[in-house]
Design a protein around this nucleic acid. Structure first.
Lengths: 180, 180
DNA sequence: AATTTATGTCAGTCATGTTGACATATCTTG
DNA sequence: CAAGATATGTCAACATGACTGACATAAATT
């Protein structure tokens, strides 16, 4: 062992996957790195726009899921975002105060505050999704349908399924698309 | 429940891409969401392990790139991570103090501090990469080689190429299309 | 009536990001 | 060589978004 070793480094838990191309036992530095850069630039699109509103990533995530799953409960949102009540409370309060989201008391359970995006909120979330959609469209434009399906399959398979929250149940449970 | 509209929200910037499957003009909520969950769980693997070392994501990113690009300058690292000197300084100092990284004075330019991972650092970074590689292997195991290449192509195409830092030059510069 | 649940809120802490200023060593240039 | 530019390190101060733990309220459940 010289000083720098990386292909057979200690703690290699391999064993699990040996893919069709036969590169088992190898650390996937390339994908790891691509994921970092891809996600960095992907969220960067929205981050820049959010500054103009005085919002951050946390606001975006809340808006996104409230928009996509109208009537989401606060507790569901906590599961999805995997943050604490305290952290959510801050951004949610801002979004409520500034009219991007409204709460409605649950019909069956009046303790629940069901969350809905207002038109103002819809506009914001669509604007941000538009930026990200542009990037996605650019990225897939030279990939054939089968390849695009592979991308989708890959992303789905990267997600933990042992503790599906309400949103993931919708995504995976029906195995189709949540909306549309 | 007639006050909430979500499918025809304003500000739709569309127009940019019309992919082969003919779903132009549509926001790609599915991919946006899958990216969120996939990345959340992907980095979650490492986050959990890092706790045992008293480190965070920032430390991981530094270790990763120093390992992958031995002799990286501090300035390069700042470009790649897109954080400030101050932020980097804090985590870098810890990693140096605790022996995960060493600095060497540049040969040509003695102002430079070239960064290298120590064996201790290599072990850590390989352990983390192992966890993430397991997830990636699991995700691609049912995807054929062509599909896997599509995944790689997708991730590469998601990355900004207008301001390539030293690392991105290495990733993209040597390969096919610099900017097409 | 007592307990549990869903939500909201307070106080304090931590990690990681920011800006701006400044110090030092070293390289480059007039 | 002197002057300036560059690479790095460091200080103070601050913002955001996480965290914990405690506690309050209203409503549902037992």
């Amino acid at each position: 062992m010289t000083d720098i070793n990386f292909s057979t480094a200690a703690g290699d838990p391999d064993s699990k996957g040996s893919d069709a191309a036969g590169r088992a036992n190898e650390l996937r530095w390339d994908i790891i790195e691509l994921l970092f850069f891809a996600y960095r630039d992907f969220v960067g699109d929205a981050d820049h726009e959010l500054e103009a509103f005085g919002f951050g990533r946390a606001h975006h995530r809340v808006m996104h899921f409230v928009h996509r799953y109208p009537g989401l409960k606060v507790a569901d949102l906590l599961d999805v975002l995997r943050i604490t009540k305290q952290s959510l409370g801050r951004v949610l309060k801002q979004l409520l105060d500034e009219g991007y989201i409204v709460q409605k008391t649950g019909n069956n359970d009046r303790r629940q505050r069901l969350l809905y995006a207002t038109p103002k909120g819809e506009t914001l979330v669509a604007k941000l999704a538009g930026l990200q959609t542009d990037r996605i469209n650019r990225a897939v434009q030279e990939i054939d349908p089968a390849g695009q399906e592979a991308v989708r399959q890959f992303l789905r398979a990267m997600i933990d399924r042992d503790d599906p929250d309400k949103v993931l149940e919708t995504i995976f449970g029906s195995s189709k698309k949540p909306r549309e």
